[in-house]
Design a protein around this nucleic acid. Sequence first.
DNA 1: ATGAAAGCGCTAACAA
DNA 2: TTGTTAGCGCTTTCAT
Lengths: 339, 339
Amino acid sequence: MVAQSTRQRVLNAAQQLGYQPNVLARSLRQGETRTIGVVVTDILNPFHATLAKGIQDAADRHGYVAFLFNSDEEPAKERRALETLRGHLPQGLILVPTSGAREHLKAMPDLPVVELDRVTGNPDATTVTTDNAGGGAAATRHLIDLGHTRIGMIVGQQDISTATQRHDAYRAALEAAGLTYDPALVLPGNHREDDGYRAAMRLLSLPPDRRPTALFVGNNEMTVGAVLAARALNLHIPADLSIVGFDDSRWAQTMTPPLTVVAQPAYDLGVQACEQLLRLLHHTGARTPARVQLPTTLIIRHSTGPPGQPRTTASSRDPARPASSSHPPVAPSAGPPRA
Amino acid sequence: MVAQSTRQRVLNAAQQLGYQPNVLARSLRQGETRTIGVVVTDILNPFHATLAKGIQDAADRHGYVAFLFNSDEEPAKERRALETLRGHLPQGLILVPTSGAREHLKAMPDLPVVELDRVTGNPDATTVTTDNAGGGAAATRHLIDLGHTRIGMIVGQQDISTATQRHDAYRAALEAAGLTYDPALVLPGNHREDDGYRAAMRLLSLPPDRRPTALFVGNNEMTVGAVLAARALNLHIPADLSIVGFDDSRWAQTMTPPLTVVAQPAYDLGVQACEQLLRLLHHTGARTPARVQLPTTLIIRHSTGPPGQPRTTASSRDPARPASSSHPPVAPSAGPPRA
DNA sequence: ATGAAAGCGCTAACAA
DNA sequence: TTGTTAGCGCTTTCAT
């Protein structure tokens, strides 16, 4: 409520002096920081980095700033991150939960929370996830359709919702096809590359008549390990072993052979999570919690094929084959939007 | 200065009530936020994600929290990030600068800044970088020693210090070996995968007698593009084309064939940057600015070898070769510390 | 349309 | 050792 000219002069002066309002004082006064907290499980994992980018971009569009923390898959670190975050009075929280999350969240009862990718099981929570059941089923059916009957799975920790959902879908798909679910072919891992490596080594070292001819691996990092294990055992993909991974990545697109995967829309997951959180903040109407679920897509590349003949040792045949002519050239991999 | 028992009781009560000091009020009062700002160029690039992790881990150890932003390689976004950051009164800043950074930093003259990986050229700046000159020279010499005489380079933007340093070292190494520097074999790119793809496509489409037999690619993302371009042209690595990349990664370790690279200690760079910044904050003595430079390592894998015979079309020979036996199995790739 | 004053939650300084 | 007070920079309210 000032004359235009005065307004302009003040604004100019502010500009000149490089005045920047003190966000802290403002936040303290009005009790709103325009800040949201984000805790992902592993920022070095491209899937999580992409989630984070989606969140930050969306938050920025709405005038919020997102503070990003890392739990490194460790409940204790998650707890620390949440405590640190809390001191900064975020107006909401987006969390890829560890197994300790449900407990930790009790300490911050009034904070709007969106659970992203995984879910703590809290029935009141707003969640943004992917269709893990559909993805797990599609992957397993794809292998069944190719003729595999001994399909192994490397599965994440059973206290993580995505891992159990993918595992349940795998089991259901097997049984729906009349195949028996063999617990000996299912090995757990803690979501990291070397977990996948170790699990695959064990599964692939079974005697030939019991060794799986195909592997469904429950997350992107463990898939890398599984592929390396197959290489170390000199098993040819897909002739000796078919592999389906979960979550697409440039690595999956460009490895030889390009990997068949269940793709998840990571960037959109992040954007959705942020949008849901902002909805929570604004429509403070306590209606039924939102559950957003985004679809997965089975992308069939060249790491899956019909099963080969069982043989006594893996390296006993394997005729020389050209490395690059077995599949078409690959164009530059598409990433999430960058601009 | 309270009796022990009282102290305990108060602490307990605080715990019970879930009391958490209000960081904003505290910061406002004491004028120190225990916060540092971090702006990297591309959080989706594993190199930058690793820098960020090193910084965050180090900051955490010292009781600081690091707020992470993204400039997406765009000066305008960098400016926005810095403005946002400034409002939150960080006590210092770690920046992987874009070309606009020098200008942007003028708006925040009293903020201690560490320039990370790249350098704006400000002589007063504290910097933490790698030995780009040494790395570029080692890569080039390696190719020369293998017998290559037409060595191309895909180089980053010339207003980015790392790009010019690597390029200058390449040129100097060529000339030191008595080879002529051919500008037609040097193509610029904007640090992204598709820039590398396009540049490599152009270089590799030169007539056979002028086409480079080896490529030194100036950063990790563009190297991916270059490899895919070689595949698209059905050029065999290393028989038809040797490639050396800059910056190691899991992708480089596990692609076929495993990539020869100049490795940089990304995680340590982040840690060092944070430590230097904290040193600036505490030893406020305005002595000569620190310049930390970490070494690079040439890791010779299987994407480099002696040049083949020039041929008219790339796909005219290429006898079938076993894909997996030409190099030893690869163990799970080592990453930076996670715990 | 403008000015004055109170107070957000904390801590540093001082007084008792 | 304990209690009181002022003030960080801002916004909101109320009075002019």
